[in-house]
Design a protein around this nucleic acid. Structure first.
Lengths: 338, 338
DNA sequence: GTCTGGCACTCGCGAGCCATGAGTGCCAGG
DNA sequence: CCTGGCACTCATGGCTCGCGAGTGCCAGAC
């Protein structure tokens, strides 16, 4: 096991490297952090740390930089989450409170995260799966054409066209609308399928085709929207990535455009708290030199979606984690209020 | 005025430079394009073109590269729009036809444009201003809280919460819903204000406050949504920008995140056809080394929104213009069908 | 007049070279 | 187990220099 001092050395290396972006040597370390020992001692410690795979040197006769494993240890054992200061918290709250609707909440959250962390921010729209139905509306557009509108308790609205197999009268429409709402309004999305299962039976034979078409469209909407949308921002911060620019940045930009990839990325985080995935821990190849800091957020106790940031593995983990956690908390509050 | 041959020389320079990304000299020109004259003659022509400001040399004893003014002349006089080939057109059509709703149409359009042009694509959502109202729905969420849902003929749905000054009965609600729809359904957004002006008068005194609140919310929605949304994609193509990477790319990424900037950018294009803004012709500073190729598109004869691409001034203008025009045309068709 | 071949000149670029210095590993002594 | 000392490594930056692409200009040909 690593001695106390070696851990301190590792912490110092991470902190310095994150600050300067340059390999850090033994002398500089003893000067900037008062470790109470000489450079030679630190050199021995560094050699040990390197043997264990926590740090590496880009080339002989250069300083050391942390490896993914080194960052992992740092995050798990050596650093806490840096809480936001009171003024920062106030600023977050003020900024988010100005939002006028759900889109705006998400947009503001993205901007906020990007600014606070100076990295790329990713915010998933509040999930429908855990939401409840507020209202289902059916509109007749043409004799055999309906529009289905689903309104959720998070204020989200989804609409779908429905082509009916047979003309559907206004009376039947009103009937269906009423029955549908009395069954599903206020219920969780996951419960809806079983609740509407036998609904078609209540209708005349000629209308049953249309009713079941409507029902299956509704269920589809619930499932499809489970592949949720998300918003990203702060991509300009990618320019702060490093020197070996284009090669690193290109796959990251590509990954960011693949919503599926991002959703999987956020989805992987299972912890209740802030999750950090470092470098190669990310399944996606293009993101091998990035770290993802994410957390769930939600209006009540439960998380309904995730948000997070993507940045270079060389990032200020405590600060980033603090910012992500704080933003998630306040977004949750805002959602609960509205 | 420039002689015929000098124009040919300019065209050759633009074409070569776009292809190779390297300053082009007199010898290479005579070899690659059979101009029928010697390098020396071309040198004289180049000197003249440089005097006129159409080309420039990065440093003495290097080849020439086109200036913004040179590209402008090239686009206006020397090159047409390169039409898409039949297979390309079929591919475009097939790809767009798979779309299931408006969001999907826009998303697919963005991807398509980015792939075809290998540049950053920007697509504005179809505008509401020129659209017509398909349906207005009012839902009662709480005794003094309504939800207003607006459905447009382009399939877009917008919702707003309305806090009523006084409780509003179901009967009044149904009445308002019916009156509202009979007046505005099928009408243009721009006509709505005058159509609903005196609607409150038809109601009892106690309900008038609520009615006018609803109406003003509706009008707000129309206006607000005029500040339209847009979708961008293909940012990974920014890596193909050039060598002097970070400095150029950063402001571009920043500009791309400012929807306002982009909307203004697209909005500036007034021509009925494809519009090209080259380098410094773009008002926004960050985009001084980029060109924007944009065009309006719409379901009928009229353009309801714009789409386009942003790329380095050194781009294949004929090809890009062709792709942008073709995509706009097919998106228009798709919108008209749905 | 216009084009052409020739010629001297410019200058960015890459290769090669070297001194510098930060950083290392190792070892012997406290 | 820590420390100071020492020899070694090697990336970096400054330097020179030759190459070659490209230019401008001029005298002569068509």
């Amino acid at each position: 096991m690593l001695s106390e001092r070696r851990l301190k050395v590792l912490r110092a290396i991470v902190q310095d490297y994150v600050g300067t972006e340059e390999p850090v040597g033994s002398k500089a370390l003893t000067e900037r952090h008062n470790l109470g020992v000489s450079p030679a001692t630190v050199r021995n410690d560094m050699a040990a740390l390197e043997d264990e795979g926590f740090i590496a040197q880009p080339h002989t006769s250069a300083g050391r930089i942390p490896t993914d494993k080194g960052y992992r240890l740092f995050v798990d054992k050596l650093a806490g989450v840096k809480p936001m200061t009171a003024p920062e918290r106030r600023a977050i709250q003020n900024f988010l409170e100005g939002a006028v609707d759900l889109d705006d909440v998400v947009a503001r959250t993205v901007r906020l995260l990007a600014q606070l962390t100076r990295q790329v921010a990713v915010v998933q729209y509040p999930s429908l799966t855990r939401s409840t139905v507020r209202h289902v509306e059916l509109l007749s557009l043409a004799p055999a054409r309906l529009m289905l509108v689903l309104i959720t308790d998070t204020g989200r609205v989804e609409q779908r066209m429905v082509d009916c197999p047979a003309p559907f009268g206004e009376a039947s429409l009103a009937d269906l609308r009423a029955r549908l709402n009395s069954r599903v309004a206020g219920r969780r999305f996951t419960d809806v399928p079983s609740l509407v299962e036998d609904l078609a039976e209540a209708f005349e034979a000629e209308d049953r085709g249309t009713v079941s078409t409507v029902l299956s469209t509704l269920l589809e909407t619930l499932v499809e929207e489970n592949e949720e949308r998300l918003m990203i921002g702060g991509t300009a911060n990618l320019t702060r990535f490093g020197h070996d620019f284009p090669l690193v940045i290109r796959p990251v930009l590509e990954a960011l455009e693949e919503q599926v990839v991002l959703l999987k990325l956020l989805g992987e985080a299972k912890d209740p708290g802030v999750t950090v995935r470092i470098g190669h821990e990310n399944a996606h190849e293009g993101l091998n030199s990035t770290s993802v800091v994410s957390v769930g957020y939600g209006s009540g106790g439960e998380a309904v979606a995730k948000l997070g940031v993507v940045g270079p593995t060389r990032m200020d983990y405590p600060g980033t984690m603090g910012a992500v956690r704080a933003v998630a908390r306040y977004v949750g509050q805002i959602l609960a209020e509205s």
